[in-house]
């Protein structure tokens, strides 16, 4: 006789995001917002710069979120959020969580200066970057979050991305802010846990969310979760957190990492890669993984 197994639902039932938004099918970013808001609750204000989410939310006068949104300039997610937090406190609201919600372009590239400034000041905000690894809203141009080997409209097949992705977690950890974490839409319990943990911490908190983009990755919408899971299982996008720049913790240990080829082959953006190029990417993934393990062991 098999024993009855019960799973506890750790994800809040409350929905702060409505259907009818403008995301594409299989959009990782929309799922990320839904989960993040479940963790943070209604007493949250979000600053959204230019990114897919500037559109997903819905055109004026519509909004798919039950929380207030400030659509701010591209490079200002962190600086706008800093101002919102200060403003709310000055009008007597010290409880509301201020969330900056930006894409990889707005975080790794154009918004990095403002983000670094806010982190150095240890502003009391949560900064979440949903990373779909290119400028997807403008039509798939490379960002510094685009991985080595990828095609985009500005890194054509003949001259695919030759540089590895920028280590944003390393950069943010170097600011020694209270909390830095990675999260993935394929691991919703982990993501919700991390946003809940972040909510209870004061100071700058940074969460890097892996958010597949079928339109930009040339993948099937139904493969979004599969791809996000493979990214973790191959060690390409590990789930870990860093506290005060010192304490590195691997949240999901992978005993046997899957080969990166399994992840790459499901995406049209890597279709041009030859075996030796895939081997080069595998080498880079291995090196990053070993480096992370060492940091987490210390």
């Amino acid at each position: 006789m098999t024993k009855e197994r019960k799973m506890t639902l750790t994800i809040p039932k409350e929905e702060l995001m409505s259907p009818g938004h403008l995301a594409c099918q299989g959009c990782g970013a929309s799922l990320a917002m839904r989960l993040a808001l479940k963790a943070l609750g209604q007493r949250t204000v979000v600053c959204i710069p230019a990114c897919c989410w500037a559109v997903i939310d819905g055109p004026f006068p519509h909004s798919s979120l039950d929380i207030p949104i400030y659509h701010c300039a591209f490079e200002t997610a962190a600086s706008s959020a800093s101002g919102v937090k200060a403003g709310l406190e000055m009008v007597g609201d010290t409880e509301t969580t201020v969330l900056a919600w930006a894409g990889d372009g707005g975080t790794f590239d154009i918004g990095l200066q403002a983000l670094s400034g806010a982190a150095e000041r240890n502003e009391d905000i949560i900064y979440a970057c949903y990373d779909n690894e290119a400028y997807m809203n403008t039509g798939i141009q490379r960002s510094s979050a685009t991985p080595l080997g990828a095609w985009t409209t500005t890194t054509p097949v003949k001259h695919y991305k030759k540089h590895p992705k920028k280590d944003i977690i390393g950069i943010m950890a170097a600011h020694r802010i209270p909390y830095v974490a990675t999260a993935s839409v394929a691991y919703p319990e982990d993501m919700v846990k991390k946003f809940k943990k972040a909510k209870e911490i004061k100071g700058t908190r940074f969460i890097h969310i892996f958010a597949p983009c079928p339109a930009g990755w040339k993948s099937r919408p139904e493969d979004t979760i599969k791809l996000a899971r493979l990214a973790v299982q191959t060690g390409y996008f590990p789930l870990y957190e860093v506290e005060y720049g010192e304490k590195w913790t691997l949240n999901l240990k992978i005993k046997e990492r899957k080969p990166i080829a399994e992840y790459l082959k499901l995406q049209g953006r890597f279709r041009h890669l030859k075996d030796d190029e895939i081997a080069m990417i595998q080498k880079e993934v291995d090196a990053n993984w070993e480096r992370l393990l060492k940091r987490c062991e210390q």
Partner: peptide
Amino acid sequence: VESEHSAMAACLGASLA
């Protein structure tokens, strides 16, 4: 802040609040 751009951005966020 770390730039005038962020100075105005922060003012705008605070004003909206």
